[in-house]
């Protein structure tokens, strides 16, 4: 499993597409409404899935394929949000990212379109 993380608009998806030769149909883009389609090779925007879970009061789950490419936005560095759901969103996404990083073979952070290998 490979994990790609980075701030908003830093080029995570473009990096993953190129590095892992992903076609459009390989990628599931998470929404706040739906469960991720874990049968796809790449699940992108995991922070959106977590926000949906929090809005519905559910716990998030990870069911990636062994060869999965997971993409998540780093939302951890700002001021603690005033609104409770956003506070929870920030914390739960952080927990999920740490759990994915623990399981992943590689962790790559994107910074201004440049990849930095963390694991």
């Amino acid at each position: 499993m490979d994990f790609v993380i980075g701030g908003a608009w830093q080029g995570k998806l473009a990096y993953a597409k190129e590095t892992f030769q992903l076609a459009q149909e390989d990628i599931f883009y998470c929404t706040r409404q739906d469960m991720p389609d874990w049968s796809r090779r790449c699940v992108a925007g995991l922070e959106e899935y977590v926000l949906g879970c929090i809005q519905r009061g559910e716990a998030w789950q990870l069911r990636p394929r062994a060869d999965a490419v997971l993409i998540c936005r780093d939302i951890f560095c700002g001021v603690v949000p005033v609104e409770a759901p956003l506070r929870l969103w920030r914390e739960e996404t952080g927990r999920m990212a740490a759990e994915i990083a623990r399981q992943a073979d590689t962790v790559t952070r994107l910074f201004c379109g440049l990849a930095q290998r963390l694991k």
Partner: peptide
Amino acid sequence: FLFSDAGIYDGPTEEYRRALALCHRRLAD
């Protein structure tokens, strides 16, 4: 670098963030 917070922004603000990240990526290139 203002891209790693847990804010949800209004349209023009997010558009500004997207544009700033574009400038950063191009300059980094």
